[in-house]
């Protein structure tokens, strides 16, 4: 059989959303950023929202998100995306607005902006990629780096005494009255991808209903920064990140989820 016999319209089972550009992703092979981008763009395609959406790209590996997401985007200074998004959303309350941020961007340099946007209940969506490290700058310690985890600025492992504790910013923002839907997901398996996509869809639907800030953490990997093969990195993530950053909803309909 020739490849041409297979590549036919009637055999099509999956197609790249036109809301992703044709640019080659700059992410390392195996990185979760690409999948997370795709999910957000597929949801916006389903909503038919390309013309009504403004995205905010952070500083981090996803600084070039605007090269891949086929929508109008604004590139913000390191950590300031929630403030930039506030500026946009307050002027265009009927548009979809979201930020896409890494853990360094959102939970270190941008903590103040994150907390205050959440506390004000700004009507936009935050997509938060937690890979436990600063990927872009070459693998330094992040606020979410686990205890004992080796990075280039914690070369002997994160020492909680001198470097502080890994920050569960998601649980923290869930405490704030301004957040409406807060959840933690992943994108390492097809099942996880489907769940995450549902959560993203829900967040954008709630944004349309002016319910307040929706916050989606995606626990992800950084095989380059963790110095592991892609497969090993995902295993390591499941074994080490998930116990500390448990999967699932943290706040639904403005109510904290009580886990028992």
């Amino acid at each position: 059989m020739d490849i041409k016999d297979i590549v036919k319209e009637e055999n099509l089972v999956y197609k790249k959303t036109p809301l992703m550009t044709n640019n080659v992703l700059s992410y390392c092979p195996g990185c979760g950023h690409g999948t997370a981008h795709r999910i957000v763009m597929e949801v916006l395609e389903e909503l038919g929202a390309q013309a009504e959406t403004i995205g905010v790209a952070p500083v981090g590996c996803s600084v070039l998100a605007y090269e891949f997401m086929n929508i109008d985007m604004i590139q913000a200074a390191h950590g300031r995306a929630p403030a930039v998004a506030t500026g946009i959303k307050r002027c265009y309350p009927d548009k979809y607005v979201f930020t896409y941020q890494g853990d360094g961007d959102l939970a270190a340099i941008g903590t103040a902006e994150t907390i205050h946007a959440c506390n004000r209940g700004e009507n936009f969506t935050i997509i938060f990629i937690n890979n436990g490290i600063y990927g872009m700058t070459g693998g330094q310690m992040a606020p979410t780096t686990l205890k004992g985890m080796k990075t280039s600025t914690s070369p002997y492992g994160r020492d909680l005494g001198s470097m502080g504790n890994p920050l569960k910013i998601t649980e923290l923002v869930a405490q704030l009255p301004g957040t409406y839907f807060v959840t933690r997901q992943a994108v390492h398996t097809p099942a996880a991808v489907r769940k995450t996509k549902k959560a993203v869809r829900k967040a954008f639907d709630l944004q349309k209903e002016n319910k307040g800030l929706c916050f989606i953490e995606i626990v992800s990997n950084c095989n380059s920064g963790w110095k592991m093969s892609p497969v090993k990195a995902n295993q390591w993530m499941v074994e080490n990140m998930f116990p500390f950053y448990p999967m699932g909803d943290v706040k639904v309909d403005g109510q904290l989820v009580i886990k028992g």
Binding site: A108, G138, Q140, S152, T153, S162, M163
Partner: peptide, 25 residues
């Protein structure tokens, strides 16, 4: 970034008692 990376690697708190801290911003 090599400045702070080098300092962390060198354990200056053991060499001289120098404090090295990665700030949040």
């Amino acid at each position: 970034s090599e400045v702070i990376e080098y300092l962390m690697m060198e354990k200056p708190e053991e060499r001289t008692g120098m404090v090295v801290l990665q700030a949040e911003s």
